[in-house]
Design a protein around this nucleic acid. Structure first.
Length: 158
DNA sequence: GCCAACGTTGGC
DNA sequence: GCCAACGTTGGC
């Protein structure tokens, strides 16, 4: 399968691009959306490239790049009654939620804000998640073209 | 804090 | 299987 591209959202108050840089690699636990899970479980491959998006941030936008370092395996937090992400319907025999490992690649010198992305919406496909109204997917596929465009835009900033 | 958009749940 | 109610996401 050719390399694929993704956008993954995180609230920087909880886990930012700086946090990812500090740990180098992180299990992406806590995803509790079926579409996002299916993308991680079925489609992500080691080496896939990721736009790391800060949501609920000032400003919101793409903060840097990451890559997939490990394919999907069961998210331990679903089995932990103490966890916010506990799922009583999940069992170790039939886990419901999966996670991948995400590895830090780079932090943009300046965040590519959502406002900037929208002001250049014509450069992106209509499917590009940040320009799609009301998109709430925490993990979403991105076309190779949109990925490249986002990286170029970010790097053209100073 | 507001609220639109969207996903999930559960009654029928 | 439909769909209203509800909860959450996420930009502003």
């Amino acid at each position: 399968m050719p390399k694929q591209y993704w956008l993954m959202k995180s609230e920087p108050d909880a886990f930012s691009i700086d946090d990812l840089a500090a740990v180098a690699q992180e299990p992406w636990s806590g995803v509790r959306n079926y579409q996002a899970r299916n993308s991680m479980r079925d489609d992500m491959r080691v080496g896939d490239e990721v736009l790391f998006y800060h949501s609920n941030a000032k400003p919101a936008g793409i903060a840097g790049l990451a890559r997939i370092a490990r394919t999907a395996y069961p998210d331990e937090t679903q089995f932990d009654p103490e966890s916010d992400y506990y799922d009583p319907k999940a069992t170790r025999e039939t886990p419901r939620w999966f996670m991948v490992d995400v590895q830090f690649v780079s932090k943009f010198s300046k965040i590519l804000s959502l406002a900037e992305i929208k002001s250049h919406a014509h450069l992106f496909s209509a499917d590009f998640v940040p320009v799609r109204k009301g998109s709430r997917l925490s993990v979403a596929p991105v076309s190779a073209e949109d990925f490249r465009t986002a990286v170029q835009l970010a790097k053209s900033k100073r």
